[in-house]
Amino acid sequence: MKILYFASLREALGCGGEEVALPAGVADIAGLMAFLAARDEKSQVLRTRRNLRYAVNQEMARLDTPVADGDEVAFFPPVTGG
């Protein structure tokens, strides 16, 4: 699956996105975030950053939104356009 990071989160992680094989046992955003955050020191920001927002296939999602292989999942801070 394709993972995207934006704005301050992209800077903190040092990358705008990555390809990840859906890990066994991961079924929703909460599970995916926990998996991604546990990989190394830098990725901890996915667990420690407050108010993160997420989207699955370009639609706003919640922690219990299901994720599947082939999905595009994005993580980002609260939006500040307009």
């Binding site: 989207a55 939006v79 500040t80 356009g81």
Partner: peptide
């Protein structure tokens, strides 16, 4: 539209 855009549309200002 503008009020909703500011909290929902994925833009970020630096």
């Amino acid at each position: 539209i503008i009020d909703t855009l500011k909290t929902r549309a994925p833009f970020w200002k630096r």
